[in-house]
């Protein structure tokens, strides 16, 4: 239980891992926008190529990426079936009783698959696989810091996230201990119907809550003793400065987006209805 991994972070050395997390957050947002710019065969092809390039650039094994796509597999299959059978077009491929399959339908099914997988691969490669949760929290605080002007407690939320991440393994360990202790007193977690099992969880949850609250109290005192007074006047050990090379990916994504739009306009091909 001690080696619990947070999120989906995949440790590796790659240009994407090294990239400033703030840049990555902005890139992710822009990449999502880009995936919705695609309209025809060529732009979708470019989108698909870009996701594959991101995977290669991030040095994350394809197996892990496919594993990440598995939860949306049903959605993918379902939407593509609907698209194949229900899209009306001009080129009829197959007609059998009430079923009409048009070429346009096949294409829009492929488009949907490419779009959804690119969204998942893009956000995964740019954020979750290549950025540690803690770096992500810090970066979010920075990216959202303009909101401090309108009194949004950005620092406090970031601090809460950090503490939550810090205490996940501690509480997992604690749960483990409590479960063992209750088992030693004859508690049974694996037999009985669903109601019995839920009931069996109560003697775990109550001590866990009690200890979590007492930990929270202790931590608050310890933080006060270390002069914590909220975000005001706080400095940071790691100050991230935007360097010239951090701007290159931003330029690239703008070029990519422009490319998609140009392909939509000038390259003929099947267009998504």
């Amino acid at each position: 239980m001690k080696n619990i991994a947070f999120g989906q972070y995949y440790p590796a050395r790659s240009p994407l891992h090294r990239l400033d997390p703030r840049v990555k957050i902005i890139l992710t947002i822009l990449y999502i926008v880009c995936s919705f710019l695609c309209k025809n065969v060529w732009s979708f092809a470019l989108l698909a190529i870009s996701s594959i390039m991101l995977i290669i650039l991030g040095r994350v094994p394809f197996k892990i990426i496919l594993g990440g796509l598995r939860p949306v597999l049903i959605v993918l299959i379902f939407t593509s079936i609907i698209n194949v059978f229900w899209t009306k077009g001009e080129i009829l491929l197959l007609e059998w009783r009430f079923i009409h399959i048009y070429l346009e339908g096949i294409f829009s099914a492929i488009f949907i698959i490419v779009r959804i997988s690119s969204l998942i691969i893009g956000t995964g490669m740019l954020l979750t696989y290549t950025t540690t949760p803690i770096a992500l929290t810090d970066a979010l605080e920075d990216v959202l810091s303009p909101l401090k002007k309108v009194k949004v407690p950005v620092h406090d939320f970031a601090m809460m996230m950090t503490i939550a991440l810090r205490f996940i393994p501690t509480l997992v360990e604690e749960t483990d201990k409590i479960m063992t202790a209750q088992k030693a007193r004859g508690a049974d977690f694996s037999n009985g119907n669903i109601i019995d099992r839920v009931k069996a969880l109560i003697p775990i949850i109550i001590p866990l809550f009690v200890s979590a609250f007492s930990r929270a109290g202790d931590l608050a005192t310890a933080m006060e003793c270390r002069c914590y007074q909220g975000g005001e006047g706080r400095t940071r050990l790691h100050v991230r400065h935007m360097r010239f090379k951090d701007f290159i990916p931003l330029v690239l994504i703008v070029v990519f987006g422009t490319g998609l739009v140009l392909l939509n306009i000038f390259a003929p091909g099947f267009t998504m209805s």
């Binding site: 803690i134 810090r166 202790d218 310890a222 003793c225 270390r226």
Partner: peptide
């Protein structure tokens, strides 16, 4: 400065 009893409950960062 003050150091407390439970080491787990005074560490803030990951």
């Amino acid at each position: 400065g003050m150091v407390f009893q439970n080491p787990d409950n005074q560490l803030v960062a990951t």
